[in-house]
Amino acid sequence: MNRSAADYALRRGALALVTIFLVVSFNFVLFRLLPGSFVTNLSHIPNATPAFRRAIAAEFGLERSKWEQYIIYLQQLLHGNLGVSYANDRPVLSNLTTDIANTVPMVSLGTLAAIVLGTLTGVASAWRRRTVVDHGLTGTALAFYSFPTQWLGLMLILLLGSVLPTSGMHTPFLIGAPWWKSALDELHHMILPSLTVMLTLLGQYTLVVRSATLEAMSEDYVLTARAKGLRGSRVLWRHVVRNALLPVTTLVALSIGFIVGGAILVETVFSWPGIGLAVYQAVSERDYPMLQGAFLLLTISVVVCNYLADLLYFRLDPRVAR
């Protein structure tokens, strides 16, 4: 058992590493496939001489062969160098770190709330299927799922804008306040954007958990459990939900992985200075290194979360052992 667990972890880990390597390489190729090089962009100034072009190319190392560039790219990546942002001349990594630090609390709050609430509503509507509870819960979930995010955000601002802060993550006048006060202030700012994130994810979870639960409820072992004379709640939690949540693990891992990607629409609507907003700005300013860096972090995060989900799955489902 233990050996096979180690085997499994190793195998999945190797697979994850290979995926990351492929993504890194793809990232390299992708940005070199874009029409025109960085040099044509910079040397677009009138009267640029060929010598000037060569100088720029040499400065950025672009006169070397693509393979050499690739090797250098990999080496720099291993040293944590993601390049320099065109927009503000700061290292991409430090830009991204600030943005992620802003994004993660807000989006995690929304995502985790959606996971917990969505699971509860999903299980509840399956257990009370075809009743008012079921129709009400799935109907609500579907409605929120189908609203465009930015519209939902705007509606929340209209509805709650008078009581809750609607933009940014700090009150600008709160200077020199003790740490807990500014933390509370940030939490206060987080409510509306997190709520929006939660509502957009909620529907998906309700529906997926509902159908997984319904499927588990029709399994034979649930009939066995009822025949054993167990209470309804015990049948539900020990036998149904435990099995129904297995397929949901993957979905949870994906959502958590995407936290690092931020929530572009939500952050834009609420001017949250996170990675979603940064990506939005990078796109409009053609800030390729930033995009490349954000893209890389996002994929790595998704791959890692998937790996963790695989390991968790191994713990949860004894059948995976083989």
């Binding site: 399994e219 072992y221 009939l223 066995t224 459990a225 025949a227 054993k228 004379g229 099995n243």
Partner: peptide
């Protein structure tokens, strides 16, 4: 009725069925 199930009347289900919970 619940208290009597399995205590007084127990069942053996169809051989082909998944009568056992796979994660326990």
């Amino acid at each position: 009725a619940r208290a009597s199930r399995w205590r007084h009347t127990a069942m053996v289900f169809q051989g082909a069925m998944n009568a056992l919970n796979p994660v326990k």
